[in-house]
Structure formats: C-alpha cells, structure tokens
Amino acid sequence: MEQAEAEPARGRVTRTRLTEHVPKAKRCTVIGGSGFLGQHMVEQLLARGYAVNVFDMRQSFEDPRVHFFLGDLCSAQDLCPAVKGVSTVFHCASPPPSSSNRELFYRVNYLGTKNVIETCREAGVQKLILTSSASVVFNGSDVKNGSEDLPYATHPIDYYTKTKILQEQAVLDASDPDGNFLTTAIRPHGIFGPRDTNMVPVLVDAARKGKMKFIIGNGKNLVDFTFVDNVVHGHILAAERLSRDSSLCGKAFHITNDDPIPFWTFLSRILTGLNYEAPKYRIPYWVAYYLACLLSLLAMLLSPLVQLQPTFTPMRVALAGTFHYYSCEKAKRAMGYRPLVTMDDAVARTVQSFRHLQRVK
C-alpha cells in the first residue's frame, strides 16, 4: 500500500460479501492489499481457501472474490468496515521507502498502525500480522546471520526505518493472549519478484542512465534478498500457527530466502538477465561513504535555493557495501518455515516477468 497524500475516495468499491460458508478463522483482511506484497498476499490467501477483504488507498486490480474498501489508514471510521467480521488482519501497508516525506512515514507507519491496533481490538479481530523489516536492527554496519535477539537500531539507516521500529514495537506490545488479541511481526529483507514496483524498475532505470558501472567495496558482502512468495508464505504460516499458547505471541521473526548472496552478484544477475551490463569498476567502501556524506551535506546547504535529491546517499552506500543477512532459525522452529522458491528460480521468474524492460541490443 503506497499511502498517497491525496484524499482518497472512501468506502466500499464492490458489493461482494465475505463468503458466508467460510468459517471465521479463514476470513481475513489485507491492509495494503493493492501494493506489490499485498497483491501476492491476496492471491496466495485465495488459493488457500481464505475469504479476503482488501483495505487500501486505491484499488489496483479486479477480482470478484475480493471485497475492496478504500480509505485512510488513520481513520477508524474508514477502517472498521474492512476488519469487521474477520479473524485475521495482515498489515503490509507502508509508504515507499524512497519517499522523502518524513511526516508521511510517521503518520502511516506509526499513527496509522496505532489506529489499526485499536480498530482491530474493537472489531473483535483475533490476530494481527505485521509486515516489519529486518532493517529495524541494522545500524549501517555489518550484520552476519543476525538473530531476532539483536536490539533495535540505535542509529537507524533512515527515518523510514525509525518509524518501522516504532510500528513494530507498538504491534508487539499490543499482543494480549488473555484478551484474545494476538500479534506477531514478520521481518523480510530485500523483497523482490514479479510486479515489483521498486527494486527492479529502479535498478533498470539506473542502468539506462549509466549509473550502474561501479561496485562499492570488494563485492563480497553477503545480503539477504527474499522472493515475494516466500515472504507471503511466512506471513500465512505465522497467522496459522499464532495461538494463545504459542511462542509467536508478541514476537518478531526474520523471513528470508535463507540463502544470502553477494549484493553485487544479485544485482548483476538481474541486469545481465535483462541485457544490461553488470557493474565492473570498484570504489573503496569508505571513499564512497564519505563522498555520499558530502553530497548529502551539499544538498542540505542548498535546500533553501534548490531541491536536490542525490541518488548516492550514505544509506544506499551502507546497504550496498556491508554484510546484512539474517537467520531464519527462529521461524523454522516456531512455525516450520522453509522457503518455497529457491534463489535461482526466484531470479529466473523475476527476470522473465520484467522482459518488457530489457535492453534491446
């Protein structure tokens, strides 16, 4: 769900009702169901026999089996009809991380999530599954096989991540087994796959502009990239295993492909699969980082006169040049998680889905 700043057209946009013969335990709402992850979530839930509501700012697809609601995440009046009568809510709504709108991040990720919690409680929802991020424990330095025991980042890589920390804390603190309201958080990392609106399109755009020629660091830093179907699988497993006496209550879980890959190898496989050249020149990590800091400082100093948005930022340098991959052992033990799609198959399926963006030689 990409929360826009424009005022949405509120209310239901279809007249379909949740299938009455579906038991309440199989009735759910996907908040942000029109987004990249949300659409895949809806498709897999339908395939598993769930009755599905979608709540979002916009309706991006048609399906007669889905009951759509449009509205503002911060409005209980808008949200209540979408979660009434369901057992489980999947909350995967978030502004795009690339946005520079700090107010929007805080409003949607934190204030909107607080509204989700209160509205779900009042509507009698039993389970709330949050899409968080593994970056909530990433300070910008190496994380190798990081577990959920790592503390929240004291210096988050950006303001978006800071609000994701606040969001996750609010959801996990709200878990109340005695009150029959159970919560858990899924922490994916580097989501990609067909219909991705961020990673692959941005990568291709940069390649077309000649901005994908350099490797930051030695190119050996391992990173988790997670295929979207595996992320959805983790969410659904969490919902199905979450119960009053389970170890999932009020806890967060890393969900990845469980197969870390060198950052630049992954990008190169996507680029070469679409007929673009892979990066080949190397820049030492600290040279790139300090250069990015200088560019960011320059943009800040010039902001009263001109708005500059450097593509070369300290955050992006840190993401591209450090190790950051995470252990899935806790999810394996608690919910029996195993990736459904291997990295090789995931890359192949993603490249095939973006053939329309390939370079014509």
Rank of each mutant, 00 (worst) to 15 (best):
R338V: 10
Q126W: 09
F55S: 05
L267T: 03
K114P: 05
G217A: 05
Q309P: 08
P279A: 07
A51T: 03
R241S: 10
Y50M: 11
D224R: 09
Q77W: 04
F253V: 02
T322G: 03
A185D: 03
N145F: 08
W286S: 08
F225E: 00
L37S: 03
P279C: 10
I31T: 03
K164T: 02
I31G: 03
A123P: 00
S353C: 14
V228H: 02
S60M: 07
E122K: 11
T265S: 14
V347C: 04
L357Q: 09
A93Y: 00
L271I: 11
I270S: 02
C80A: 10
A9K: 15
S296T: 12
D259R: 07
S327P: 08
C120S: 12
S243D: 09
F90W: 03
V228F: 08
L308N: 12
V42S: 04
V116S: 06
T161M: 13
S133I: 06
M343C: 11
N218T: 14
F253W: 03
Q309W: 14
S296C: 07
V347D: 02
A9H: 08
E277D: 13
Q3W: 08
G210L: 10
L130P: 00
D178L: 10
P339W: 00
L305P: 14
S353D: 05
G112S: 04
V171A: 06
F323N: 12
G234E: 01
K220E: 11
H91M: 06
Y326I: 00
A278I: 05
T272E: 13
E43L: 04
P151L: 05
L291R: 03
S75L: 07
L295S: 11
S75E: 03
P188G: 12
L70G: 14
T119K: 01
P151Y: 04
R102Y: 11
R107F: 08
D344M: 07
Q307I: 04
A346M: 04
P96E: 14
T29C: 15
I165N: 01
N257R: 09
V223F: 13
I215L: 11
L166H: 02
N257V: 06
S147A: 12
N218E: 15
R65H: 13
E43V: 07
K164N: 00
P95S: 05
P194L: 13
T256N: 09
D196Y: 08
I215N: 00
P194Y: 12
R187Y: 10
Q3N: 15
L302A: 11
A288W: 04
A348R: 11
R355N: 08
F90V: 05
K213P: 01
D56T: 12
Q169D: 10
E168M: 12
H91Y: 11
N198E: 15
D173S: 13
I215G: 07
T313N: 07
K26C: 09
V351A: 12
L267C: 09
A331F: 08
T88Y: 05
P262N: 04
M41S: 14
G85Y: 00
R15S: 10
N180A: 15
F90Q: 02
